[in-house]
Design a protein around this nucleic acid. Structure first.
Lengths: 200, 200, 200, 200
DNA sequence: GATGAATGAGAATTCATTCAT
DNA sequence: TATGAATGAATTCTCATTCAT
């Protein structure tokens, strides 16, 4: 009995998911250059041929990881935050979410968060820069937020980019440590430490 | 009559310095895996053979960069801070130094600072972990400092490791951005942003 | 639809055989150090990549030659000798076989015989020693045989190891000469020359 | 006070001796291809430059080892044997000498004996063949001796080359084992084992 | 006579990518 | 869709050899 179109589609999607997931984990752990596609196929238990069937090369695979795995996941993090509160409350909710992620045992989410913030790193930078206009969503989001917080007179009056880079570097560092230390021994910083950088 | 020992020593040391410097810059810019030794030799204008005459392999080169270039340079940064002040003042002086470095046009110093804080990254992690006992000097230094600051009732009462990781992640992020943006367009965060994380 | 497992297995096995065979010949002729993998790939008409697809490095290739080519072949030599005769007759049959091999134009068999007896040579020594317990089968086989021949009062009453080393050195030397002289001009010694060393 | 010509000459000769000796040991232990000139300089505690000052390349060094170290030493072994006895007695004396060497703790002499008999091996073969006419002295010596022994009706009546190769292979094998086993645990075969191959 | 820095060709090894089925 | 064999260029590493002093 031949499989139906839907069944094929489903198989296909699941395979792609597994590959993307394996790749995401390895990229987060070892960096773009540090990962060989052979490792990816081993982790995903698929052949080289299949990997290249779905992704035309290593760069495309990396971009697919960002677009299909990382961005949606982080988008979800942001999406149910009520943007219409005061900026400091939005930021507070955002940090709640982020800290919840790094404190949880959900390695995938931490990895995605890290990959998002890591975009600017090394080769990844070049890979991404080629087809991105302006900043990653998260960057603009935080930038805008901080801008508003300053106008609302809650945040310190420093240069916005300065503050954005600081906040994001900090979160990236936290995620990085969480990835390399593991959920068991890791202690996430308190929200107040981070908010302390912003609040007057 | 052979060259004198001193002559050899001098030639040797100069060449090693050039190689280490070239390697340091490239490692900071592109990461351990992203750098090929061919690039290093081109940058240092030497042959592969010479590189291997002085460093037995890529890992050893990386370690030598840390030990002979990075650590001493960062040590110098710390060394003339008066440790006998209150912790918050020591921290303040430390941040002054660090921010002075990243605000200056001295790319080497920024690079060294970044490499120091980057040790835990990816392959570097394994390379370094093999022969380090405990933490890098800078880690313990900051840890101890924060501990004292807490006892002196100036710093917030959070977990010390938590605070240390936060501070160092932040500085690393700043150095990272400085490296990739360049001194012209880069704006360093104000010291108060960082101190704000610590101070009550 | 992928190739069937059997198809892959067959392709794989054939290629591996060709590579091992090429390697075996070269190792016998020029020694472990004297052979470059480039020569092996040329002889086997395959790429470097493929060689490394099947063997993780030069050492592994050498070990595979011994385990997959040399040992089975020499085992076959021994296997149909009737062990239940008197030791001197077993030895006689063994020498018949060996001398038949070196007198034949079958270069592969001579080569395998030589490689077996050559194990202790140079780098090969280290390579092999790592994962062998005790002696190569052939050594124990001959040792035991000589021991028995002494008990049966047919062989001279010297130290067994002494006699074993002598016999094996001699056969190795013969195989060595046969390899380097070629079957046309080579004259194998008579069995009696060798038996003369043992018989009372 | 400047050194006299003789003093210079002496220094020179001693240095050359040390280098040749180091090289000889390494060649015997690891084969021509397995030895790097860097190892030789380390063993001889001299610089690359000096090695090349005395020997124009690796091949020349190898040949010099044979000509200046190996041949004279083995020649000495032979020289005080009274050639005017019956062949079997000459052979007996020769074997006495040889077995004395391999049974002694004099590693250098064993090494030289082995190198002599090893000439035909691998690359060494090519190196030596280039400028040798006919066989190495020892080969012709033994050949002639066996021929005579046959005429004197003491030795078996097999092909002379056959017997010569057998005898020399055997001695080489013994020397080889002695080198790799060391003098402590090594047991040399009795002369009778070897004579047994020849005597009627 | 002596040193060791320096070179460059070549050997070992890795890895992205292609291809026949 | 799926496999893994196969390739070749790039990368790491080794080593005989040269050279300035």
């Amino acid at each position: 009995m031949p499989k139906s179109k839907e069944q094929f589609e489903q198989i296909r999607n699941e395979r792609i998911k597994i590959i993307l997931n394996s790749a995401a984990t390895l990229f987060a752990l070892k960096g773009y250059e540090g990962v060989s596609l052979d490792e990816v196929t081993k982790e995903a238990k698929c052949s080289h041929g299949l990997l290249y069937h779905y992704f035309s090369n290593k760069e495309e695979l990396y971009k697919a990881v960002l677009e299909q795995v990382v961005y949606p996941d982080v988008q979800a993090l942001i999406s149910d935050i009520n943007w219409d509160q005061k900026a400091k409350d939005v930021m507070s909710s955002l940090l709640d979410k982020v800290l919840e992620v790094v404190s949880s045992s959900n390695d995938e989410k931490v990895r995605n968060l890290y990959l998002l913030l890591n975009i600017h790193l090394q080769k990844s930078l070049a890979v991404v820069k080629k087809n991105e206009k302006g900043h990653t969503p998260i960057f603009s989001y935080v930038e805008e937020l901080i801008d508003r917080g300053k106008k609302e007179n809650d945040f310190k009056d420093y240069d916005t980019i300065e503050l954005t880079i600081s906040i994001l570097s900090l979160i990236k560092g936290i995620a990085f440590n969480r990835i390399h230390i593991g959920s068991k021994r890791f202690i996430a910083p308190h929200k107040e430490i981070i908010m302390g950088m912003l609040l007057k």
